[in-house]
């Protein structure tokens, strides 16, 4: 039963990922007074790029050709580790730190691909994406700080039921959620940190690493970024959202929550301007600081 929920949840999350991105884009377009593309545009783009001819730049090697597959594999495993039904089967990997390390794996291969494209933009993107990663990883750890102290272990599994019993008050939860939301924006390459819609060399980060990709490799990269967004928003709701009795209800609730968050993402993206690149470390340090503050409120208040 749990296995079935987990498999169907993963398949749905992966399958609906382009839709969630499409929702965010549509909301953004409407708020900007445009009609915008269909919410299903992501699927059409994926189908189109997948069937186009695939080329690689001169001087690139097997690293360039394998990187999209390895990155996408890491993101698929992350999506499969999120407890969509509230809990995952015991025999299935369910560790929060493994999620961090898999995100690092994805970033590592994205960076290698950028360096292997042998052009200026690839190196530029690799440098920016990995620099961004140095801020994101500690901030992500800090935003989960409250979890470490409450659960006492690093497994995703029993976090949810245990947290259900905790009554911490609104403030620590709110701060932790804010910290996590700030990190999600940076990790998924969204405004105010990065803008996936632009291909101007001054601003692009993630897009610069995959600039030389097309065809099947580009489709893999685009699906990957959509899955990443879905998975990390879903992970946030696993510990912030309410837990229902049945796994199926939990799965449905998670998907609705991710859908609403995507709409919210569209709103955030149309409200905020992009930060200067050199202000991003400050932004991420702020996210880490808010996470630490939530953590401190819990450990000093004796609420354990």
């Amino acid at each position: 039963m749990l296995w079935l929920v987990q498999i169907i949840g993963t398949v749905l999350a992966v399958g609906l990922a382009p839709l969630f991105v499409g929702v965010a884009q549509t909301v953004k377009a409407r708020l900007q007074g445009r009609k915008g593309p269909s919410v299903l545009q992501g699927y059409w783009v994926l189908a189109k790029t997948w069937h186009k001819e695939t080329t690689v730049p001169q001087y690139s090697s097997w690293v360039f050709r394998l990187a999209p597959s390895i990155s996408l594999a890491a993101l698929l495993v992350i999506a499969a580790m999120i407890p969509w039904g509230g809990t995952v089967p015991q025999a299935w990997p369910h560790n929060l730190l493994a999620v961090f390390f898999l995100l690092a794996l994805e970033r590592f291969w994205l960076g290698l691909a950028g360096m292997d494209s042998a052009g200026t933009f690839g190196g530029l993107g690799a440098s920016r994406v990995t620099t961004l990663g140095t801020g994101i990883e500690p901030a992500l750890l800090a935003s989960f700080g409250i979890l470490w102290v409450l659960s006492g272990h690093t497994s995703i599994q029993p976090i949810a039921p245990e947290l259900e019993r905790m009554t911490l008050g609104v403030l620590p939860w709110g701060l932790a959620a804010l910290s996590y939301a700030l990190v999600v924006l940076a990790e998924a390459g969204r405004l105010p940190v990065d803008n996936l819609d632009t291909h101007l060399e001054l601003t692009m980060m993630h897009e610069a690493t995959i600039l030389e990709y097309n065809g099947r490799f580009l489709a893999e990269s685009q699906l990957g970024i959509a899955i990443k967004l879905t998975a990390i928003i879903g992970l946030g709701w696993v510990w912030l959202g309410p837990q229902l009795g049945s796994p199926w209800a939990n799965l449905g609730l998670r998907l609705v929550e991710v859908l609403i968050s995507s709409a919210g993402l569209g709103w955030v993206e149309s409200r905020f301007a992009k930060l200067r690149y050199f202000q991003v470390p400050t932004y991420l340090a702020m996210a880490a600081g808010i996470g630490m503050l939530a953590f401190y409120l819990v450990v000093s208040g004796g609420i354990t």
């Binding site: 001819e53 695939t54 080329t55 690689v56 730049p57 001169q58 001087y59 690139s60 097997w62 050709r65 394998l66 999209p68 597959s69 390895i70 996408l72 594999a73 890491a74 698929l76 495993v77 499969a80 990997p93 898999l102 494209s117 042998a118 052009g119 933009f121 600039l211 030389e212 065809g215 099947r216 490799f217 893999e220």
Partner: peptide
Amino acid sequence: VLVAAAAGLALLSRFWEAREVPRW
């Protein structure tokens, strides 16, 4: 799971079939 997914995707993307072009 990780290695199998990566290998499967690599095969699916037919990584060996790609034309070399000058870079941008």
